[in-house]
């Protein structure tokens, strides 16, 4: 008898433990101040819609850590990967605009993903507020150090090029597709499951070239295993000053990745100001500065309107370019 009683108690305690946190969350949510003048009164949830360990995760952790002090509350990171950031992003944008739910977002989701997938429920820019813009990451075209192609001119004249990409709808794919199409090269894209497998394939000379972010390629370039031929930015990168831009070489292909922080539209004025100021402060943090240098990321710090305009312009530009070259990523 007593044994079964004890067991029931254990179960009851477990059940209560399961219910408690839920109840606690509900209570706090209901109590939040509409005007947001005392924001923040509790921890802020920062959704990273990418897997742990990747560039998107690392930059989020770096900036969140620096923003905790000016914000006066802790920032809790949760990884919620899926569909190039769409899964986590949509969820945060569907939440109450109270400043307690923010998310990292990337340019490619707005500028490249629409070229690849038809998503009627895609995030509409007017549903979000951009509380901080963070970084710009350039794509660099690399070949294996043992490759016979020493320059961009030699590569585009090759009889056939097999190029690796980090996947469908990535900047690496778009930049190479536009370049080789523009140069009239017979080229086949071979999408891999992320940047690291694509770099691996190039290191093993399974493919002829790849375009990847500096974070993915720089260590191999430094070690002399990969050779950079061109960079797909408007100006040369501070990290690779000797590498010409594709533009200099006569191919007007500018593709980059940009990362920023979003919140659902309709934040109270005080909340949005507090968030903007806190992240502006965080970007001045010396540890954040070191992080950017170590990870070959360049600062991109503009206003909400400028950022929106940039996303819009890039989306139009990419759509026009792919159309002009007759490229289709949709199937």
């Amino acid at each position: 008898m007593s044994e079964s009683f004890a067991r029931r108690r254990v179960l009851a305690v477990l059940a209560a433990a399961a219910v408690l946190p839920v109840a606690a969350c509900g209570g706090v949510k209901g109590g939040s101040d509409d005007a947001g003048s005392d924001y923040p009164t509790r921890a802020v949830n920062f959704t990273v819609p990418f897997a742990a360990g990747g560039s998107g995760d690392l930059i989020s952790r770096a900036v969140a850590k620096a923003a905790e002090k000016p914000l006066g509350q802790s920032i809790v990171i949760a990884n919620k990967p899926g569909a190039n950031g769409a899964v986590g992003g949509k969820e945060v944008l569907a939440s109450t605009p109270d400043g307690y739910n923010i998310a990292l977002a990337v340019k490619s989701l707005f500028a490249i993903t629409p070229l690849v997938v038809n998503d009627p429920t895609a995030i509409q820019p007017d549903k979000m507020e951009i509380v901080a813009t963070l970084v710009q990451e350039d794509y660099v075209l690399v070949v294996n150090a043992a490759s016979p192609y020493k320059t961009l001119e030699e590569l585009v004249k090759a009889p056939s090029v097999k190029y690796a990409t980090a996947g469908v709808g990535t900047g690496g794919q778009l930049s190479q597709a536009l370049l080789f199409k523009g140069a009239g090269t017979t080229a086949t894209d071979v999408p891999f499951d992320g940047g690291a497998p694509a770099v691996t394939a190039l290191l093993g000379r399974q493919v002829d070239a790849m375009s990847g972010s500096l974070a993915e390629t720089m260590e191999h370039i430094k070690a002399g295993k990969l050779r950079p031929l061109a960079i797909f930015s408007t100006e040369r990168s501070e990290f690779l000053p000797d590498v010409p831009t594709a533009k200099e070489k006569g191919y007007d292909v500018v593709v980059d990745q940009r990362r920023f922080i979003i919140a659902p539209a309709g934040l109270p004025e005080a909340v949005s100001t507090k968030l903007e100021q806190s992240f502006a402060e965080a970007r001045k943090d010396p540890a954040y500065e070191t992080f950017l240098k170590d990870n070959y990321m360049e600062r991109w710090e503009v206003s909400d309107e400028e950022a929106r305009q940039h996303l819009k312009d890039s989306a139009t530009e990419f759509a026009t370019l792919t159309q002009r070259f007759g490229l289709t990523f949709k199937s």
């Binding site: 997938v117 469908v168 499951d193 990523f329 949709k330 199937s331």
Partner: peptide, 9 residues
């Protein structure tokens, strides 16, 4: 899931 080479769902 998304087709690994074409990206179509």
């Amino acid at each position: 899931g998304l087709d690994p080479l074409m990206g179509s769902p």
